[in-house]
Nucleic acid binder design. Sequence first.
DNA 1: GGTGGCCTAGTGGCTGAGCCACTTGACCGG
DNA 2: CCGGTCAAGTGGCTCAGCCACTAGGCCACC
Lengths: 233, 233
Amino acid sequence: MSEALRPMVKSRLYEQVLERLRAHVTEAGLSAGDRLPAERDLAASLGVSRASVKQAIVVLEVQGLVEARHGGGTYLVRDTLDVEPVEQLVERRKRLPEVLEAREALETKLAELAAERRTDAELETIREALDFMRDEIDGGDNGVEGDRRFHAAVTAAAHSSLLAEFMKTIAEQITESRTESLRQPGRPSRSLAQHTAIYEAIAAGDAKKAAAAMRKHVRTVAKVRLLTWVPED
Amino acid sequence: MSEALRPMVKSRLYEQVLERLRAHVTEAGLSAGDRLPAERDLAASLGVSRASVKQAIVVLEVQGLVEARHGGGTYLVRDTLDVEPVEQLVERRKRLPEVLEAREALETKLAELAAERRTDAELETIREALDFMRDEIDGGDNGVEGDRRFHAAVTAAAHSSLLAEFMKTIAEQITESRTESLRQPGRPSRSLAQHTAIYEAIAAGDAKKAAAAMRKHVRTVAKVRLLTWVPED
DNA sequence: GGTGGCCTAGTGGCTGAGCCACTTGACCGG
DNA sequence: CCGGTCAAGTGGCTCAGCCACTAGGCCACC
């Protein structure tokens, strides 16, 4: 596998402008309310066209970091142009332990809510996911798809779009840990048992037991993941 | 009152283009992988300059909704251009019950982690917040600022930037419920007692007890809030 | 019948010049 | 001192055009 299939992402010009802009704000020690240089000046000093500067400013505008006043200049909204969005936070691999903590917090509550609110149809969907996982495992697979469906179904049954949204932001990282966890010998069948326990608590409408079962399950996954954890960079 | 103080939010042109673009994708039934019309065609059919179309596309690009390939066209990454960011979700007032659910999920875990990880300095900060709240209440105030500081200190002591980030997205809503809760007669002193219990569990390093105390506290707040809850729109 | 190279139309990336609308602040007359 | 005016500065937007790159058809060659 050579470097032939490298990322090869040619940085767009406005991205470079963005970086220079952030650097400028930091170096010049600008803070909220301060005015940025005029677009024309920025274009000239950065050696790019005004259109490219404009694109960068538009990006900062939609991110709420800057406010452009027609005829009055462009102003900083915060003390920095650096964005620390959840997405970026999640990017860092070393944050995986944090992701698993967050998962425990969220899914425990989701299981509790699901036990209280699930409709019969939603319960059926959860059951189907469980069956699917069982079939996968019986067929020699590790049941990762059934696992995914199960948790998705529980999340849906909890009827909390806010918690669901939080889950979505860490979904990718969870997928990683799921795959890794289920690769451990003997894990799939034990995982199925844990899922079954969660299902039964939700079916019975026992919120407390559902939460406890989910917590136990998630902690098991986290433990496996942490054992194989190797700090990076 | 004339129309003099109209909304006055002059929508930037690229924002209008953005809307038209989203509408087009929906109406034309485009899905992931499909190609958008060429920039020149879009500019012509929307009656704007190519630069404005470009700004809109740049916005979609940084949001990861679209992928522009130099010389190869611009392609949809998902089935829609609509974004449902957490912020937007939180905006809706009717979601407040969900916010309180999320708060319980997050803060319970935060208290647990704080009990395990807090440094002595962080514990001291939590204690100071508690003292501050007591002084406020003794002075006839409702202790809302001390309350805020307390939860902020616990969040910091948990050392989980991801959970902290989630808390930040619902911070504003929590402030509302906090104020409303502490306005109830007799609430401030009872709230102080609950906070003290949380503090002691964290001080003792008892994660389980800290989580339980925090859960109880948050549920009390949620209950008050829900009692005064009046569905809107 | 492939197979590989070439060529061209189409497309995004970017520029430069320019006009308009709006803001700001200094200047001037009362 | 006040109020109006005006010019410079600034963002909003357009137009026309060049370049770099991609995709797909075409053709010569094997």
